[in-house]
Design a protein around this nucleic acid. Structure first.
Lengths: 136, 136
DNA sequence: TATTGTTATACTCTATAACTATA
DNA sequence: TATAGTTATAGAGTATAACAATA
């Protein structure tokens, strides 16, 4: 029962740490003017990617990707291009998208608490702990 | 630069783990019919607590606590009682609130991945890692 | 018939601002 | 003047359902 309380506290702390990471991320990408999910999508697209795959990787509904793609396309950061299967639309970075993506990576690296506060050994310890928790 | 990628990946994993905890929590409390923030509040109230303190502990605006208190009061789980300072309203559990609170604790303990998948040593390792990350 | 993406709509969580009543 | 709580409103993120085009 002490165990319950300790586990509860640890879970709360873990959630708090995640929220801090998210706040730092939001702050890091704010100058870009992108919404958080649009920035997450931009970071995800390392090569032209079907919108369905984006929705799977972000673990959200496909209808939501339509919005994000609209936002990124209006900003000239991605293009929709048709796949071989003509139902499929791939999101492809424009040159401007590629540049912004790189700068978002740098900004995130500069603020991400995991990068700033954890040394390699600490990070390995974190990885081992996360290995124990269920994926997805 | 490999370091950037590894830190990024670790941060993403940590956020995912937190989201899993939150999903499990939502599933655990679903039978109660309470919203997630109302359930969090119920778990927080171990003794009559000023609404302002609730807002601080949940790290949210005081106006939001008004809503949560309304929900909990309509369900007959808490009462608003005036403090000595007559501006202050304390949230106090009713007997039904006390019973539901206990059952939510049990439900959370049964599903919380931290409790289910991490042994005491693992949890201490997690605590040490979280000590390194910025609080709040 | 199943899948990709779109549209329209609505829900949840949460903040901001303006207010009331105390202190 | 500052603080506790309330009210009204708005915004972000996200889901659901119905649909069109394609497979």
């Amino acid at each position: 029962m002490d165990d319950v309380v300790a586990s509860h506290a640890a879970a709360v702390r873990l959630v708090r740490a995640a929220e801090q990471i998210k706040r730092d991320f939001a702050r890091a990408i704010a100058p870009s003017g992108l919404s958080v999910p649009a920035a997450r999508t931009l970071l995800l697209i390392d090569a032209p990617m079907p919108m369905r795959e984006v929705s799977e990787r972000l673990a959200c509904d496909k209808s939501y990707i339509t919005r994000i793609a609209d936002e990124l396309e209006e900003r000239g950061l991605v293009r929709r291009v048709s796949g071989d299967d003509r139902r499929v639309q791939l999101l492809e970075l424009t040159p401007a998208g590629t540049r912004l993506r790189r700068s978002l990576f740098d900004a995130f690296a500069a603020t991400n608490p995991v990068a700033r506060r954890l040394g390699p050994a600490d990070r390995r310890a974190l990885d081992r702990t996360l290995d124990l928790l269920p994926p997805d």
